[in-house]
Design a protein around this nucleic acid. Structure first.
Lengths: 251, 251
DNA sequence: TTTGTACGCCGTACAACGTACAGCGTACAG
DNA sequence: CTGTACGCTGTACGTTGTACGGCGTACAAA
C-alpha cells in the first residue's frame, strides 16, 4: 500500500489538525486517549521501526487498546499520517537568522529540514499529495518564507525558490532512507551485497561497451564504499542549489 | 507496503536482469510464459492503474495464469520491480548530442528522464534502494555520463553532477505523480478540494500571525490553480540546476 | 524404448493489513 | 429518572505476498 496524505474529508481533517474544540464530543463515556497520544504513539513506531511497520494494530497495541478504538480519534490511517506530519513540522527548530546573508539563512533552513528527516526518516517516505494545512505546516511555511523576504523576489519566485530548496533536501533524505530501508530488509549489509554482486556483475558487464560507466562507477564505488553516499550528495547538492538560486537572487 | 528494489539474492537477480541463458531450466514441461511477458504485463498494469494496483494476482490474471505461476519466472515482487525498472531504462530515448554545448546536452538528459516518468509514472515511486544493475540501467548510466565527459570534471564530480541532475528530475516527477495519485484516490478534484478546504482553513488561519504565508500562498494558489504546479517547478528548477552546475563546470 | 527425475503449474493455506458493522455500556441532557 | 449520544470492543470481510505439497510433463540416461 502506498501511503498518502490528504485523502479524506477536508473539513474533518482540518478540524483535527487545528484541534478544533467543537470537534470533541459532549456525550458518552470518558475518552481514554487523546489525539495527541495516538499521534505520539504512531510517530514513535514509525521512527523506531519504519513506515511499513506503522499499522493501526500496532499503534493500538502500543496504547493498550483494540485497533478499532483508534477510529474514534482519527477517521483513518491517511489522516493519522497528516497529523503525524504536521506534528513533526511543528516540532522543528526555527533559528532566528534575521539580518544574516541569504546563503546562510537558506543553509539553516536546509539543515533544519535535513534534521527533520533525520529525526523522522518516515517523513521522507510519505507522499504529500496535498500538504497537511495544519498549524505545523503553516508555521513552517511562514518561517521559511521569511528567510527569502526582502531579497527583491516576487511572491511567486519566493515560493518557487523555497519549493526548489525543500525538494532537494527531501529527495536527498528519501534516497538516503531508501538505502537504509533496503539494508534493513535484505539482511545483507552494503559491503556484503557488493561483495556478492561485484564478481557476478563483472561476468556480464563489458568494459569496452561501457567504458565511462566502468571507470566512473569504479571511482565512485571506491570513494563511497557503495554506489551512493548521501552525506556527500547533500553537501555537493546544497552548494549547487545555492549557486543556482544566486543567479536569480543576485541578478 | 513500501515498494523496494534490490532486496533479493544479488546473483539470482543479476542473472535475471541480464537474461542469463544458463538460468533457464533444461527440464520439465514447456514454459507457457517468458520473463519478458511477465515484465510487460506488470508494466502495463502499473502504467495504467498505478503502483498500488500492481499485485501478483493481477499480473497473473492478465496473463491467464494462477498467481503462484509467476514465482517460477521471478523470485518475488521486489525482483519483478527491478526487472520493470531496468526494462523501462532500456526503452529510453538516447539522443546523440555529441559536440553540443553542455547545457543543451544536460537539458536533453533531463528531458529524456522526465519523459521516462511521464511514460512510467510508477517509476518515480519505486524506491531504488540499490539500483538494478541490469543492461538498461548500465546503458543509461554510460550514455548520461558521456554528456559530462571532457568538461574537465573528475570522475567523482561527473557522478555527483549526474546524480544531482537526476534526483531533481525524479523528485519533481514524484511530487507531480503523488498529486495525481491523491486526486485519483480521493475522488475529489483539486479545485473541488480547495473549494471545500478554503473556507474552513480561513476560520483557523490568522493572517496577522502568518502574513507572508498568507500573501505568498494566495499568490501561488491563484497562479497555479492549486498549491503546486509541477510543470512550472520543472522549468524553474532545471534552470537553477544548470546554473548551479555552471559554477562547477565553468570555473 | 523405457524409466528416473527435474521442473512447470496449480489449489490451498497462512499471516497481516485496513476497516465496516453491530452490540454493549457509560455519562450527559432533558 | 430516563432517553440517547457516543466510546469501546469482538468479529468479520476482502485484500495482500508467498510458503508448501501434489500432479503431470518432457528431457537424460540406460
Amino acid at each position: 500500500m502506498t501511503q498518502f496524505t490528504g485523502a479524506g474529508d477536508p473539513a474533518r481533517t482540518l478540524a483535527l489538525l487545528w484541534r478544533d474544540p467543537a470537534a470533541v464530543p459532549r456525550r458518552g463515556p470518558q475518552r481514554s486517549l487523546t489525539v495527541d497520544s495516538v499521534v505520539a504513539a504512531a510517530t514513535a513506531i514509525a521512527r523506531e521501526h519504519g513506515l511499513p511497520a506503522l499499522t493501526m494494530r500496532r499503534v493500538a497495541e502500543a496504547l493498550g487498546v483494540v485497533p478499532m478504538t483508534l477510529y474514534t480519534y482519527v477517521p483513518g490511517k491517511a489522516e493519522l499520517l497528516d497529523l503525524m506530519l504536521d506534528a513533526a513540522y511543528a516540532g522543528m527548530e526555527r533559528t532566528d537568522t534575521t539580518g544574516r546573508p541569504w546563503r546562510e539563512r537558506l543553509t539553516t533552513v536546509a539543515d533544519e529540514n535535513r534534521a527533520l528527516f533525520e529525526a523522522h526518516p518516515w517523513a521522507a517516505e510519505v507522499a504529500p499529495g496535498r500538504p497537511p494545512l495544519g498549524p505545523g505546516a503553516i508555521g513552517k511555511y511562514e518561517y521559511e518564507l521569511s528567510t527569502l523576504d526582502g531579497l527583491g523576489l516576487t511572491d511567486l519566485e519566493m515560493d518557487a525558490c523555497l519549493t526548489y530548496l525543500l525538494e532537494f533536501v527531501r529527495a536527498n533524505a528519501h534516497t538516503a532512507h531508501a538505502a537504509a530501508a533496503v539494508r534493513r530488509a535484505s539482511s545483507l549489509t552494503d559491503p556484503q551485497w557488493w561483495e556478492k554482486a561485484g564478481p557476478v556483475l563483472e561476468r556480464y558487464l563489458d568494459p569496452e561497451r561501457y567504458p565511462i560507466a566502468s571507470r566512473v562507477g569504479a571511482a565512485a564505488g571506491a570513494a563511497y564504499g557503495g554506489a551512493y553516499d548521501p552525506d556527500h550528495a547533500y553537501r555537493f547538492g546544497l552548494r549547487r542549489v545555492l549557486d543556482g538560486l544566486a543567479t536569480l537572487i543576485e541578478r
